[in-house]
Design a protein around this nucleic acid. Structure first.
Ligand code: NAD
Ligand code: NAD
Lengths: 212, 212
DNA sequence: CCTTCTATGTGCAAAAATTCACAATAGCTG
DNA sequence: CAGCTATTGTGAATTTTTGCACATAGAAGG
């Protein structure tokens, strides 16, 4: 048994969400069982990789048959914590922030915005979906414990992002999704994920330039 | 000399944009020279990594001194093709699409939207910044060569994304930035980068769940 | 109940990426 | 201009990740 001995590689964690997407499709299409080969093709990875990744967490497959779609999906969600609900707050209700807030993919996957903060007086007080009211960021300190906010999403201008992050951390938030194109300094105990589209664009540009 | 012999590792390419961000800050602050140690700390990576990554492309540093900020930044931009201008089109002018279009970071980095496509009749004909008019996606075929579009950005609903991608590829686009949460099938010769925030969120949830 | 068939789980080897550690070398100082 | 210092560039060691290859186990059919 692999699962009890070794720690789980980061790339494995990053591939699990990749597997869960085609699995959701298969579930919808009422396909009962999937092989590592098929799943691998759907995700564009190696079949052995799929089996090994899954084996870190348990024996989910049946030899000679494959993986039962519904139960595998459930297991992956359990591993990722996606079977739980997570409560988020949004800081920065601008173009990007409002697109994030209005996107129902997040809620469908268990990520619910329960508070929105913005420093613009023109936006403070505005009433959004689910009765959420835009508040000044100075309310973060008080709102995080009261609303049990677990994840902070930063969509402010870059030069405000570090300060906002610090407010979130000191209010008790341990995980931050940061859309501002800067490197956030964080306490040891906290996790930060950066999303930066321009990095993806620069990657594309590099590969394009090579194909001349 | 490393640079002529080995092919460049993908992770190296992915780190270059990371280096360029603090370098821009340093340039603005008129810091003339930076050591691999300092740059590494700013980016949260190992200093030897910085040196090795850069050495793949040339000898940019001065022993005993460090790297000249301005010229290093210029070199990185040259490598990434960010010194060139790139012409993009946007397909899907919804919440996310319009946030992308209105974000001036892209243009500042040399990525300019020169066309916007959306299938919604209520949006077609709308006039945006720089005189760009929202057009029906059936115009892609004709617009790509005429406007020399090099990169397509997909921000349509997921179930439309594959079809849109095919229209882009067959019109001659070789690089696609895809925001829809599906795996795009692509011809050998083309490059696709996927941006999926929910993967980042699932990562955060996993790490949070571990810290319980 | 035994045989056959199929796809998993995993030991092991290969490949890739990271990090160490140090010789090489540029600049500075006296 | 010799010696000293700082920091690069890189070969070698280490760690991590991937992929092969096959023994293993469940299912199905005779
Ligand atoms: N829009 C995009 O497509 C896009 C793409 C990549 C990155 N980003 C980044 O995301 C961030 C937001 O982008 P945007 O386009 O939504 O910008 P925006 O200007 O539309 O919105 C920023 C919002 O943050 C608010 N704000 C400013 N200071 C604040 C503070 N201290 N506390 C709380 N709120 C504050 C502003 O009032 C505004 O509503 C930026 O850092 C941007 O670089 C955006
Ligand atoms: N909004 C977000 O924060 C967010 C986050 C993650 C992922 N996404 C993904 O990005 C995509 C767009 O999200 P959104 O929130 O902007 O959705 P949206 O519904 O606001 O916008 C989608 C737009 O695409 C247009 N469209 C539909 N079919 C089209 C076609 N065949 N050709 C051209 N245009 C077409 C629609 O008219 C609409 O304007 C979705 O796939 C979504 O899952 C969005």
């Amino acid at each position: 048994m692999l699962r009890n001995h070794k720690k789980i590689p980061e790339p494995t964690i990053e591939r699990l969400p990749l597997y869960s997407r085609p699995l959701e499709e298969l579930l919808k299409a009422e396909v009962p069982v999937v092989s590592s080969d098929t799943l691998a093709k759907l995700c564009g990875v190696n079949p052995a990789q799929v089996r090994k990744d899954l084996a870190y967490f348990g024996e989910f497959g049946v030899r000679g048959v494959g993986y039962e779609v519904a139960s595998l999906l459930k297991e992956i969600k359990k591993i990722l914590g996606t079977d739980r609900k997570w409560r988020l707050c949004l800081v920065g209700f601008g173009n990007l922030g409002s697109a994030l807030f209005e996107n129902h993919n997040f809620r469908r996957r268990g990520y619910t915005f329960v508070a929105v903060f913005d420093s613009d007086p023109a936006k403070i007080g505005r009433i959004l979906e689910n009765g959420i009211v835009v508040e000044h960021p100075k309310k973060i300190k008080e709102a995080v414990p009261r609303l049990h906010i677990q994840i902070g999403v930063i969509a402010t201008p870059p030069f405000k992002a570090q300060r906002v992050a610090e407010m979130l951390f000191s209010a008790g938030v341990r995980a931050v999704l940061n859309f501002a194109p800067i490197q956030i300094r964080k306490p040891e105990c906290c996790v930060v994920e950066n999303v930066d589209f321009t990095i993806s664009l620069e990657n594309l540009a590099y590969h394009l330039a090579k194909l001349h």
